[in-house]
């Protein structure tokens, strides 16, 4: 998993509550044998005017020009600003995979669905919960300024706005540690590499036929 230390990036607004994982990545794309390549189908039903299926050439499909991510001013956005209960619905890990593959590293919202929350951190996405009032202000700022960027620093847990003002955010210590060091579940286990090797060495004598 890729480390997350700090990020300066364009913010895209997703101004609706209860965005569920089927909206993030519709179920027909789950047949894939991959965990990458979901980016072009992120928010598929909103992003395109036709019905998407795996294997289609997305470049040839008709875009919904009104959809926020299709507006040129939000191209290259890596921070998604959202409303409450983002990521509800089925537990599919494809949802964070799709966000990540599109390029999002941070989602800011008043609240997130539970499983989506842990799945996102496991995949290297930072989720930031802020008060509704602060979120409202951010939506206003983003709408008012083309190319609106935020600086997000995980070490200090501070968001810096273009005018230099800052917002502090909370994050669980363990999750922070994992993100800062790029440690996924496997990375955590690999911190015990010495124990695993010592075990193997002992077993090679006790039960050599297993090796």
């Amino acid at each position: 998993m890729e480390k997350f230390i700090s990020l300066k990036a364009i913010v895209a607004p997703m101004d609706r509550p209860n965005v569920d994982t089927d909206a993030i990545i519709p179920k027909q794309f789950l047949k894939s044998i991959k965990r990458t390549g979901f980016g072009p189908n992120l928010f598929d039903e909103w992003r395109y005017l036709d019905h998407g299926e795996p294997g289609m050439d997305n470049a040839k499909r008709q875009l919904n020009e009104d959809f926020v991510l299709n507006q040129p001013r939000y191209h290259g956005a890596q921070i998604l600003l959202a409303r409450e209960n983002f990521g509800c619905g089925s537990s599919r890990e494809h949802a964070p995979w799709a966000l990540l593959d599109y390029g999002f590293r941070v989602v800011i919202a008043p609240s997130f669905a539970d499983i989506f929350y842990s799945n996102s951190f496991k995949n290297g996405i930072l989720l930031i919960k802020l008060e509704t009032g602060v979120i409202d202000n951010l939506f206003n700022d983003v709408a008012a300024t083309e190319g609106y960027e935020l600086i997000i620093d995980l070490e200090t847990q501070i968001i810096t706005k273009p005018d230099g003002s800052t917002v502090k955010f909370d994050v669980d210590e363990f999750r922070k540690h994992r993100l800062l060091n790029g440690l996924d579940d496997i990375g955590l286990t690999l911190q015990h590499t010495d124990d695993i090797k010592a075990y193997e060495q002992r077993r090679r004598t006790e039960a050599p036929w297993l090796f």
Binding site: I186, T189, L190
Partner: peptide
Amino acid sequence: TSEVEHVMATQC
């Protein structure tokens, strides 16, 4: 599947 990957990478 995520455990399959975990075992592949760590044998644990």
